[in-house]
Design a protein around this nucleic acid. Structure first.
Length: 256
DNA sequence: ATGGTGGCCCGGCCA
């Protein structure tokens, strides 16, 4: 089973690239983030024409997450659904696809360490951790998406440049480690040890061509599922060319 | 290391 994640930075702007990429890559499941669409505007028919079912949780203009699948989209849950009030932003959707529980997440950016959005980010990650109490770490489960956290210093082009900034702060990394402590593995690190392998590059200043990026798009999987992973790659080709997203897709293959 | 690009939808905000 091939499962991928891609922050598309507006599905409306990216639809030609996404359709082309689906036909080329043929994932069984694709998690998308930042669709920036209302549910009414989600191009379901176009995806069905390519053989995919889909679940979308959007709010229009900002955020928005989706799961495409050609191995079923069952038991869809939008948001935290934990009874503690609705998250005002559409950042989380779950579905069961081919026997695997899949989440597509768009973790808040945080903006700055002293910003309200940073506190929202940490609270959001804690809430995601609590939601996992309702799941079994021995079951096949995967959380994919834009975590807006570089897990360690290998995952940024210059750690010194991020001191005092978001994405690398200790509380953010601890919040990610709390998810891992529940029973999730960073599948990419099961296959690659080296740094300098990134999934996001700022549009500005030619950062992609200079190799100035971060690895913030992650595939977290329970140990039993991670043990079935045969390969994982960051598809840098999708960051090239006309009208790319600022994120590259991450593609993971599992022997399922 | 600052200034830079591209998305939203039309003036800044957000990434």
């Amino acid at each position: 089973m091939r499962i991928a994640t891609w922050n598309v930075n507006s599905l409306k702007a990216r639809m030609p690239r996404v359709e082309e990429w689906l036909e080329l890559t043929k994932p069984d499941v694709l998690c998308m983030q930042e669709t920036k669409l209302s549910d009414d505007a989600f191009p379901l028919l176009a995806f069905q024409a390519l053989g995919y079912e889909a679940a979308h949780y959007g709010q229009g203009q900002w955020n928005g997450v989706a799961i495409l699948s050609r191995v079923g989209v069952d038991d869809v849950v939008c948001g935290f659904a934990d009874g503690d009030g609705e998250d005002p932003e559409a950042r989380l959707i779950w579905a069961t696809c081919g026997g695997v529980r899949v989440a597509s997440v768009y973790v808040p950016n945080g903006r700055a360490l002293d910003h309200d959005h940073y506190r929202y980010k940490l609270q959001w990650l804690e809430r995601l951790r609590r939601v996992l109490d309702g799941a079994d770490p021995a079951s096949p489960l995967t959380i994919l998406g834009d975590f807006n956290i570089a897990p360690d210093d290998r995952d940024v082009y210059d750690p010194a440049a991020f001191v005092g900034a978001t994405h690398t702060s200790e509380p953010e990394r601890s919040a990610l480690q709390a998810l891992e402590a529940w029973g999730l593995v960073d599948v990419f690190r099961r296959h690659y040890d080296e740094g300098g392998l990134f999934s996001w590059w700022d549009y500005r200043a030619g950062n992609f061509h200079k190799g100035l990026g971060m690895r913030i798009d992650l595939v977290l999987a329970t140990e039993s599922l991670a043990a079935a992973s045969t390969a994982i790659m960051i598809d840098r080709n999708a960051r090239k060319g006309q009208k790319p997203s600022d994120h590259a897709p991450v593609i993971a293959d599992f022997a399922l």
